[in-house]
Nucleic acid binder design. Structure first.
Lengths: 302, 302
DNA sequence: ATATTGATTTTTATCGATAAGAGGAAGAGA
DNA sequence: TCTCTTCCTCTTATCGATAAAAATCAATAT
């Protein structure tokens, strides 16, 4: 039996639309709502039915009633997360926080019980996750966890540098009329904005980081490079979610490096691009390696 | 209910051992057989029980009887293939032979019925397969097949060249005492042997090809490069399984290129290595691209 | 006609059940 | 004491069932 997370999320989002005034008086057609929320009409109808049932809208012509919408009407956030995300989060927590050692073998059944899902869900997650190079399957037996080790990080960065330099070079070579230049300019402004407010908005850096590196790849797209960047994004997302040490400084420094990198790109100077990219990447690597060493020492020897 | 392919394969292999005379008179201990076949003792016991049941060995002390072993005693090969391999093969056939167009959407239920397995098996295969960059999942809906197109091949080769040049360079730089040099020598000899008998042994090239490129990576291992080579191996394996055109010439040419490449490596000459590697890779690319174009034309316009 | 809603069919996500296979504990034999 | 075997438990591979969500088809209204 599927979870009804899609419905609950759609319901909450519909309430949002009404609260924000994007929907007032009569509701738009089912198809219109469907388009806005990006779910099927079946789900929309369920949402509408529930709204009627709760007296938020009237049955005839579905007018928005004068009933106030309050926080209790919303489904709790957890119930709007699909199962596989749930599994992912719990697994990453198990792996990164639990200080899971290289060579640990993973027991599907055990994890399934721990996470409260069927073994199937665990297995599907593990298959998906295995492309990150941290797991290996022994047929008819379990999985072996290779460990989020220094070696892993070094190998990851070796590829990352190759790919990034390749893409940056190609980006710099684009014709002047390319639509990517204005995009890069916009991104530069976003960086400057963030820099101004770095004191309290430093969390926003990671999404900017992502946008930047993906933009670099857009100049000459290659699906394998893009896929590889998924790995980086994923690993960093979870790793730094639980390693907040020096987050502000880290992000501040990276922001400055990005700006130098962007300027080098904007100046079309290949040597400068290479230098700036290298500088940024090696500092990112440094940061990760340092935090890995620290992680390993959480048992008290530092 | 699991399939008993492990048992059947182990059974066949045990018969092989007896036929080949590796096992005569009394059988070795369960643990010994286990070690040789690489399966669990549970499975071995099942095999032994079956052998007794069929009168191939005697119950007491498990002596090999004088009953002749004949082909009928073997389980058919198909029953020794695990389910997921089955799915894989059928899917690849569906995709490559069926001339499946880019943008085709994949229906798990439909494939499950077609291949005679539960939807779960299909889904697990698709998740595993999606790392090859040919599929994309739409949550709560199906999968979309991106197509085994020219773009795909071009992107694949761009990465392949980057990785191979990197690895070849590092390989050439190894110290003289590295154990990889003798391995390379051995591989060279294998190439020469095959070259002599190319007329009727040209099928053996692909495994040699694999060994060669994996050896190159061994000098400075990187799991992501290795994983990427899995993609290449997989794609080529199936693609050329159904595109046998010019197979002999193709392999013959590649063999010659390999030899030049190997000699360049053995001479530690970085420029020569780069040239030879490039030459080989671009010819491999040529071959693939040509066969892709032909595939597209199987509808008769050529 | 065309867009909107209503009813119906298909497909996906998810669970639970079960035979096959892995592996451990302890007795039996050398 | 050590290996081999028997017995037993736990895990994986695989199926089938079912609610949720998507997709399609039919009816109605504008």
């Amino acid at each position: 039996m599927k979870t009804d997370t899609v419905f609950k999320k759609a319901f909450n989002r519909t309430l949002d639309l009404m609260v924000r005034g994007d929907i007032k008086d009569a509701l738009p057609s089912e198809n219109e709502v469907r388009r806005r929320l990006g779910v099927s009409r079946t789900t929309i109808r369920k949402v509408l039915a529930e709204l009627v049932h709760r007296g938020v809208i009237t049955t005839d012509r579905r007018r928005v009633g004068d009933r106030q919408i309050n926080p209790v009407d919303y489904f709790p956030d957890i119930e709007t997360l699909p199962r596989n995300l749930h599994v992912e989060q719990q697994f990453m927590e198990w792996m990164l926080r639990g200080d899971t050692k290289p060579g640990t073998l993973i027991n599907e059944l055990d994890l399934a019980r721990q996470f409260g899902v069927a073994t199937n869900g665990i297995r599907e997650f593990l298959i998906r996750f295995s492309r990150f190079g941290l797991l290996e399957k022994r047929p008819n037996s379990g999985w072996i966890f290779e460990g989020f080790t220094e070696d892993f990080a070094l190998e990851l960065f070796e590829i990352r540098v190759m790919f990034e330099l390749r893409s940056a070079r190609l980006f710099a070579k684009q014709p002047d009329q390319s639509p990517l230049w204005p995009k890069l300019e916009a991104l530069k402004r976003a960086h400057l904005d963030l820099l101004e407010e770095i004191e309290h908005r430093f969390h926003d850096f990671s999404s900017l980081d992502n946008r930047f590196h993906r933009l670099i790849n857009e100049a000459s797209p290659n699906r394998f490079i893009n896929d590889f960047y998924d790995i980086i994004t994923f690993i960093f997302h979870y790793h730094y979610q639980w390693n907040k040490r020096d987050e502000k400084q880290r992000n501040h420094a990276a922001l400055i490096e990005h700006l130098a990198y962007i300027d080098a790109l904007l100046s079309h100077d290949p040597v400068g691009v290479e230098l700036a990219a290298n500088a940024h990447l090696s500092s990112a690597k440094e940061t990760l390696m340092r935090s890995l060493v620290r992680m390993g020492r959480t048992d008290g020897c530092a």
